[in-house]
Amino acid sequence: MNLTLKIWRQEDAQSKGKIVTYKIDDVSPDMSFLDMIDMLNEQLNNKGEDPVAFDHDCREGICGSCSLQINGEPHGPDTGVTTCQLHMRMFKDGDTIFIEPFRAKAFPVIKDLIVDRSAFDRIQHAGGFISINTSGNTVDANAIPVNKHNADMAFDAATCIGCGACVAACKNASAMLFVSAKVSQFALLPQGRIEATDRVLNMVRQMDDEGFGNCTNTGACEIECPKGISLENIARMNREYLSASLKG
């Protein structure tokens, strides 16, 4: 496959970026998208040019490191996959592919396609945990009965890898799908109920402080989420937040 790539290049956080066009030939349809960028970078290195900076780590779809807005969609045109799992067979010979960083004021560009997603870490620090006494007297988690349906829903919410595709897809750059998944995975379990009130209030406050937009229920986040996190989590977070606010 011969392709034209239009890639966002930005020297650093302070620089003004621009779209740069590259031609790349002999791309195998069996390559992953990141393999294809590796191939481009090899060519750029050989020419003495600065390679394209992008985030990646496990390349197995579980670490949440890779990002990329590909032809206007986070993680590209395939469904239920991260960029590292996207294969070049999803494109046709002669295609032009736009590759941009995830865009949000709360995700500033560090270089090229790499954005700073530490806003998600700060939201997690604000309440995305449970306090456990680990002094040796910890009660076995299995000693507390958990309704199977709730356990399944909590697990589904916990599959969120925090990649930020929800923010990138949302026209408002809202982080509510991410935050609601983190709120839900604990809210649905008895171990998480103890701190549920403070958790949702603190996490939502941090989310707002980071400058993410408001959710308008377009559902784009759910469609583009590589882990299929459901909008039900946002409704649950809204209920949790209203209930916590009235209590507090």
Binding site: W8, N71, A106, N172, F212, A220
Partner: peptide
């Protein structure tokens, strides 16, 4: 304001 810089390529109809 929360978006900041707009995308060059945006395929909103793919997901909403």
């Amino acid at each position: 304001n929360a978006r900041g810089i707009s995308y060059f390529s945006y395929n909103g109809s793919a997901n909403s």
